[in-house]
């Protein structure tokens, strides 16, 4: 049963991913991505990562996707439809097909290589500690991973500053 569910969700996640690329309208892309995220969350649940599943829904589906939707609706990109055409000189149809073929070939070769070789189990460190427990996550986050955790806050702040610099209308410029 759970195996069946896993395959169903994996197929949905993949279809969602394909939908993001092939959808003609940005709105369709966003909704496909949303479907893909939900399918992934179910896979996490199946694997026993309840916290991760909840975070996946809350953060990705809840926050990030809503942000995407807002941006699309505010900028009124929804109607752009078929105007997204790959007609720019470096992205001719033939070239992108070659690129896609090469990427697919490399991916396939990688898959075959991984399939053929026996995967060694975790080389050292033994079984990972039970990470799907809010208590454990907090201890890891504020203990062992406190440096990256704090650095991320600086990173987010810097990103905000960077985005503001690029996005804000400059008084001098608009005056010209």
């Amino acid at each position: 049963m759970s195996e069946l569910l896993f395959y169903a969700m994996a197929v949905i996640a993949l279809l969602g991913g394909l939908g993001v690329i092939f959808s003609k309208s940005p709105m369709g892309s966003v909704l496909s991505l949303l479907g893909s995220f939900f399918a992934l969350a179910v896979i996490y649940l199946l694997a026993g990562f309840h916290f991760m599943a909840a975070v996946q829904i809350l953060v990705y589906a809840g926050a990030i996707m809503v942000l995407f939707l807002f941006v699309i609706m505010l900028l009124n990109l929804g109607g752009m439809g078929t105007r997204f055409e790959l007609s720019a000189a470096p992205l001719t149809r033939a070239r992108s097909q070659i690129a896609a073929a090469v990427a697919a070939g490399v991916g396939l070769a990688g898959l075959i290589a991984v399939q053929r070789a026996s995967l060694p189990r975790i080389a050292q460190g033994g079984a990972p500690e039970r990470i799907d427990d809010i208590n454990q996550i907090a201890i890891a986050l504020f203990g062992r991973y406190s440096l990256p955790f704090q650095a991320v806050s600086v990173l987010l702040l810097t990103t905000m500053v960077a985005v503001l610099v690029l996005a804000k209308r400059r008084t001098r410029e608009s005056g010209q």
Binding site: A151, V154, L155, T159, V161, A162
Partner: peptide, 16 residues
């Protein structure tokens, strides 16, 4: 992880 965050902390300001 530490390296990756450092890398992004370097790169994102440079993009802007």
């Amino acid at each position: 992880i530490v390296f990756f965050i450092g890398l992004e902390l370097l790169s994102i300001p440079l993009y802007a």
